[in-house]
Design a protein around this nucleic acid. Structure first.
Lengths: 149, 149
DNA sequence: CGCCCTGACGCAAGTCTGTTGCACCAAGGG
DNA sequence: CCCTTGGTGCAACAGACTTGCGTCAGGGCG
């Protein structure tokens, strides 16, 4: 026994270390938020974070500032997938960045999927913005997801 | 004299006809809004429309509903260029359909370019939503356009 | 040409996300 | 262990967006 507990502590400790390494104080709410972002496959909105953690006693404003803090130091990224809600997703150590994988947004249910294997290719004889060549574009696809279809 | 007046009337009449043709009543405020969208090169926000026309006595809510109406019947398009403000732009008569080609949205100036020659390809070993295979997705790229870079 | 029905307008209030001021409290370096 | 610095909770604010409701007008029809 104590094994699970130890690994939980280890995980929390690792998160704290990451926070401090990024220049932030390792407060419980930041650990919670970062863990939540890491555990979510898709970008998460502030209200979704609040819904998850407000019941645990955390304040909306605190969570909001936590998200901004994580974004500021580069542990998270803030994106807008077009529905007028800021969403946050964790930036992994590998540097999994928003620009590097497209997001698929369902027009019906609003679900967001990350599409890692997709790329955009320019067809023949067509000038694309330079930003595309620099890979400095965010790609968003909108349609009906498989469940809503 | 009367020449200019006649052409103004003709333009207003044409707009009214377009509105009715699209299934909307041709009210003065809708004519004003449609004319404003047509005359503006870049997408316009609700507050910008209000600023222009509220001094003429039009109500914010009316203008807002006008914009939604125009969008609903396809005379305008609602987009978000990433600054969290809905912007509206007139849809040209050519009936350029949104789904059929990707759009490049400049994060800085809001300009929207149509990228006809671009396609999205799925990489190896990765399941994409079925909508993608059906070509039933709207593709949007965001970044800095060549002018803003 | 004038009536009537349906939909649009004006007003005002409400909602929701995002944001901030301030007093109190805790992380963590010394 | 203390002190400083920065984080947190509470509450209020801002601004874009949205809606309910009573009144008014577009335009089809007689």
């Amino acid at each position: 026994m104590g094994r699970v507990r130890a690994s939980e502590q280890g995980e929390a400790q690792a998160l704290r270390d990451e926070l401090r390494g990024a220049g932030l104080r390792a407060t419980p709410s930041r650990v919670m938020v970062l863990r939540l972002l890491r555990g979510s496959g898709a970008p998460v909105s502030h209200s979704e974070v609040s819904e998850s953690l407000e019941s645990s006693g955390w304040d909306r404003a605190t969570l909001y500032r936590n998200l901004l803090d994580l974004t500021r130091v580069g542990l998270a990224r803030r994106t807008d997938v077009g529905d007028h809600v800021w969403r946050f997703e964790a930036v992994t150590a590998k540097g999994h960045r928003t620009e590097e994988h497209p997001h698929f947004v369902c027009n019906q249910c609003g679900t967001i999927e990350c599409l890692d294997g997709l790329t955009v290719v320019s067809g023949p004889g067509r000038k694309a913005p330079k930003a595309l060549r620099r890979n400095a574009v965010e790609i968003q696809l909108k349609g009906l997801c498989d469940r809503c279809f």
